[in-house]
């Protein structure tokens, strides 16, 4: 475990961080918890705004750092991502789904269908061999966000400032990146610490 020498001094004004999980599995948010006891050092320096961790749904004020897990698979994801871009000085893509679509992007090209989205939904709700769906309908409640034609990487929707690779990134990489960003010392990743899987 890297030591926390690079952790910023506690007398700076607290930075504001917002996080969101779009088309992800929450694994990257779980990875934030892998920072373990160093979270206490980190929490001395930051406060959370909108985040699943705080259950705050809307920005209360402008944030220094926005952390995005997952790509965009529906229109709500796009709205949230655009909202983050407008309200955050630095936007970080956390994990492979945010960076290149990840597992949800399997529906984009691997289906070899002219209409991969329709085929995916029909397989999931109607034609799949192990489906017990008594209505034989694809869910279409107006409250459900409209699915996009394909899953988009975050950088295809808005400009991203940094991306932390991994599925999920390690707590060490997240901690190092955040603490260095907070002190203006971030100069890229140690190549030995990077993993795409």
């Amino acid at each position: 475990m890297p030591d926390s020498q690079d952790a910023p001094a506690a007398d700076l004004p607290k930075a504001r961080i917002a996080t969101a999980s779009l088309a992800g599995c929450f694994g990257c948010h779980m990875a934030i918890l892998d920072i373990d006891e160093r979270l206490i050092d980190l929490m001395a320096l930051v406060e959370f705004d909108r985040s699943p961790l705080t259950d705050i749904k809307k920005f209360t004020k402008r944030c220094d750092i926005g952390i995005i897990e997952g790509g965009c698979c529906n229109e709500e994801n796009v709205h949230v991502l655009q909202d983050f871009r407008e309200n955050c000085d630095i936007l970080i893509g956390l994990g492979q789904c945010a960076i290149m679509g990840g597992l949800p992007a399997m529906r984009n090209a691997i289906m070899h269908s002219d209409e991969p989205l329709r085929e995916c939904l029909e397989e999931a709700y109607i034609t799949g061999r192990y489906i017990r769906n008594k209505t034989h309908n694809i869910p279409n409640d107006p409250a459900l966000p409209l699915l996009l034609d394909k899953v988009y990487a975050c950088s295809e929707v808005v400009e991203m400032d940094y991306q932390i690779p991994g599925c999920a990134p390690t707590g060490d990489v997240i901690f190092e990146t955040l603490s260095k960003l907070l002190t203006g010392k971030f100069r890229g990743f140690e190549r030995e610490t990077i993993k795409f899987d």
Binding site: I99, M100, A105, N108, A153, Q163, F189, R191
Partner: peptide, 16 residues
């Protein structure tokens, strides 16, 4: 990609 530090947000579209 690891060796060459391919970690910047991409500038290219995914052709998929």
């Amino acid at each position: 990609a690891y060796r060459l530090d391919m970690t910047e947000p991409t500038r290219f579209p995914y052709l998929e």
